[in-house]
Amino acid sequence: MQISFTVNGTRQDMELDPRVTLLDALRDHLGLTGSKKGCDHGQCGACTVLVEGRRVNACLSLAAMHEGEEITTIEGIAQTSPDTAATLQQAMIDYDGMQCGYCTPGQVCSAVGMLSEAREGWPSHVTEDLDAPLELTRDELTERMSGNLCRCGCYPGIVKAIRTASEARTSDSEAA
């Protein structure tokens, strides 16, 4: 079937088997292999991309469900959200928030999506007071990132990197 959506600012028109997932469309049909396939079951987060700015497990979603939508992958994230993503990527390098690197693109995309959810005040399972302004404590942050597994065990570095990006972003908005 005929499917079109925008990936990292470029419109893509594809003729796809309706069974093709968003993840396979990106990896196998568009050659954007930065999004990883760790489980194909929505259990690891390695395939996280942003659809209309929201994080989505691309393996759990059919390409056909995204007609006309705006998709951001690791390949384009530094352009689409320059302040957060670029700071985060640099901080990941500085804190060595990766080893094998297979979960890394998913961690980055997920963190960018998560930070905007937090900025909008979305509560999480560990949020005590649903009415108070949200403070992104370490517990809040790790709770919200727990859908992104890292078997290499890089969590502490990833968390530090996300905090760095989140603080940079906060001072950005204060300056503005």
């Binding site: 930065g34 999004s35 390949e75 990527q89 990941m92 390098i93 990766m98 693109p105």
Partner: peptide
């Protein structure tokens, strides 16, 4: 700095199936 860190963090590290 991890030599391949930038490739990994930008999705440019290419694994077997890619």
């Amino acid at each position: 700095e991890r030599r391949d860190a930038r490739q990994k963090v930008t999705g440019r590290a290419t694994y077997a199936a890619e």
